[in-house]
């Protein structure tokens, strides 16, 4: 259950951004999380209020974009969406593929309310 550690790291980053932009509060946080990041989006959603309590992000709405697992096959040149535990090319079945998506664990965007227009 490392999602709480992840949320605490997220809150630290968000607090830093809020300070940099003299924000009163954070209203929205957008994440992208893929199945191969090792982080479960619904556990992040559960852990988020605990990590956010008492911070500038306490009332922020958390939106998680779940990215699909995509592999690129060099032998047949196709990109296919596959299951997280079978990264074989969806077209020709070879295992020598390159991951092109699905391992993200990224803070995409933060929306802030502040006093002044910048």
């Amino acid at each position: 259950m490392h999602e709480l550690s992840i949320c605490q790291a997220l809150i630290e980053q968000v607090e830093q951004i809020a300070i940099e932009h003299s924000a009163l509060c954070v209203t929205d946080i957008y994440l992208t999380i893929g199945p191969l990041s090792g982080v479960e989006p619904h556990l992040v959603e559960q852990a988020f209020p605990i990590a956010a309590a008492g911070t500038v992000a306490e009332k922020a709405k958390l939106t998680i974009d779940k990215s699909p697992v995509k592999v690129y096959c060099e032998s047949c040149g196709t990109e296919t969406i596959v299951a997280a535990n079978r990264l074989l090319c969806g077209e020709c079945g070879t295992w020598q593929t390159q991951l092109r998506g699905g391992d993200e664990m990224i803070l995409q965007r933060v929306e802030l309310e502040s006093n002044k227009e910048e």
Partner: peptide, 19 residues
Amino acid sequence: VTEDGKQAVNVLKSLLSEN
């Protein structure tokens, strides 16, 4: 700036960037 006047900051950082 979003439509309702909020500031939007695009971050694109790993959640574990501190680690």
